[in-house]
Every structure is written in structure tokens, then in C-alpha cells.
């Protein structure tokens, strides 16, 4: 992006203007979470009464995100945005133009991914597992793979595009991206046919089975009983407390002088 020269536009500013918004923000931001915001604004206008008119206008504008602008920064060019805008959503927004088959993906995967993730997505060592684990989520040993856990196939393509291969991110062409994604989805039975060609045109046809098992944060209702306000202070349980588990029994805490060398 260095070829894009920054064009510094410095419009004339009143010398006091730089300080004015800061003072205004301090007054407003001291109020907790907006509940007192309404009362803060009149106070702020009162404080500004002895100052110039523009200060009051600016301060009022700051309480409203669609208000006054500072004219800092410059318009981002379409080419600049295109170079960095790599995100993909479940509804297909952001999918790059490209295509690749499971078969093409297999050789790429073996070459660039299998060392960490295993030939069949089973994982090598402690690297993330990609496939397997269906039916384990409610067990004592849940295996959270793409097929067993991830809700959306778009997440796979998006993540490979931004972060993989680990240590050489954003190096795949769009066609390679579709091919590798197709292979990984094939390992998870989300694509059944080896000859299938995944592309931006048919991407939304691929679904993952666990989507319906996610729900939005509901702690404030499902865990309402934790808002007990006045907890027990004395004789809160019968008998003396007894130890039922010890960290030393596991002996997994790193010890002094035994940490691995940092290169």
C-alpha cells in the first residue's frame, strides 16, 4: 500500500479547538453507561455558555455519532480497501471469485496442511483437529471439529483465507483457497463427491450440521440466581470443608528452570 501517498489536508483550526472536545468528553464520559447522559448534555452546554458558540455545537454533536466531523484522515480508495477486505460471511457476502475441486484440494492439503492437521484432519500433536468427533458434544470428552461443531462453512473458507497456512498466511490463490476448503469440507462429509468443484457460485449449498445448536448469550436470565445481592456470611454449609481435589495430584504446573528455551 506504500504506493498510495498520504495527502495531508490540514484545514485551518481555531487554536483552542483541539482542547475543547477533550474537556467535553471528560464531562460526559464520567457518567456511567449512558443513564445520566441526558443530564450531562445540559450541564455541558451550561459550562460552554461563556465560550464560543462553536464549542457548544461541537459538544452537542459528540453525544451523537452522526454529528460533527473533525476532518481527520482521508477517503480510503477502493483499491486500498480491496487489498485488505478479505472477510466472508455465512450469507456469502465477501466470497472471492474462484473455484477448486476436492481432488485438487487434496494434493494442496497434503503438501501444506497435513503436517499439522493430519492427513485426514485428525490433527498431529496438539494442533487443531479438523474432522471427526460427530456425536461427542454432550459427552465428557467433546471433540470440536469443523464437522462436529462449527456452525458455518463460510467460517472455514474465511479462516483459511486470512490465517492459513500457519506461518504463510494469505499466500493461497483464490482457486487454491476453494480447492483446500472443498477438501477440508470433504473430510467432514459436508461435501460427499470427490469430483465436486466448490466455487463462489455454489458455496451456499454447503451446510454444516451443528448450526442449530448455538444460541445467543442468555446468562442474565438463565443464571439470574447468581444475582443474590446478599450472600450467606455465617455457617453457610454443614460440617467442616474437606479437600476433594488437589493440583499437586496432577503435577502439571511448570517449574522454575524447566521452561523451554525461547529462540
Amino acid at each position: 500500500m506504500s504506493r498510495w501517498r498520504e495527502r495531508v489536508i490540514a484545514p485551518f483550526r481555531h487554536p483552542r479547538r483541539a482542547d475543547a472536545p477533550r474537556a467535553a468528553l471528560e464531562i460526559r464520559d464520567r457518567k456511567p453507561n449512558g443513564s445520566l447522559l441526558g443530564s450531562a448534555i445540559p450541564a455541558l452546554r451550561f459550562a460552554a455558555a461563556g465560550m464560543t458558540m462553536w464549542l457548544a455545537t461541537l459538544a452537542g454533536a459528540q453525544a451523537d455519532a452522526s454529528g460533527k466531523r473533525f476532518n481527520i484522515g482521508r477517503e480510503a480508495m477502493a483499491e486500498e480497501i480491496a487489498g485488505w477486505d478479505i472477510d466472508v460471511r455465512p450469507d456469502g457476502r465477501g466470497l472471492p471469485v474462484g473455484k477448486g475441486t476436492v481432488k485438487e484440494g487434496e494434493s494442496l492439503y497434503i503438501e501444506r496442511c497435513a503436517a499439522c492437521h493430519g492427513e485426514f484432519g485428525e490433527s498431529a500433536g496438539r494442533w487443531p483437529i479438523l474432522a471427526g468427533g460427530e456425536g461427542t458434544l454432550a459427552s465428557h470428552d467433546p471433540v470440536k471439529s469443523i464437522g462436529s461443531y462449527w456452525p458455518y462453512a463460510s467460517t472455514v473458507l474465511d479462516y483459511i483465507r486470512r490465517a492459513m497456512p500457519f506461518g504463510n498466511a494469505q499466500s493461497l490463490t483464490n482457486d487454491e483457497l476453494y480447492a483446500v476448503t472443498a477438501y477440508v469440507l470433504y473430510l467432514n462429509d459436508a461435501i460427499k463427491d470427490e469430483a465436486f468443484e466448490l466455487s463462489d457460485k455454489n458455496f451456499l449449498s454447503v451446510k454444516l450440521p451443528n448450526e442449530a445448536n448455538f444460541f445467543d448469550d442468555d446468562r442474565e436470565t438463565s443464571e439470574k440466581h447468581f444475582w443474590t445481592k446478599e450472600p450467606c456470611m455465617a455457617n453457610c454449609a454443614a460440617g467442616e470443608a474437606r479437600i476433594v481435589g488437589r493440583a499437586r495430584a496432577l503435577d502439571v504446573t511448570p517449574e522454575e528452570g524447566k521452561a523451554p528455551k525461547v529462540e
Binding site: L137, Y149, F214, F215, D216, R219
Partner: peptide, 11 residues
Amino acid sequence: LLANGKARRFT
């Protein structure tokens, strides 16, 4: 991930 296999998101 909760015990019933469902998962809470955006926590």
C-alpha cells in the same frame, strides 16, 4: 459448550 451439547455464543 454446555453439558447438553448446545453452545452459548456472543458471551
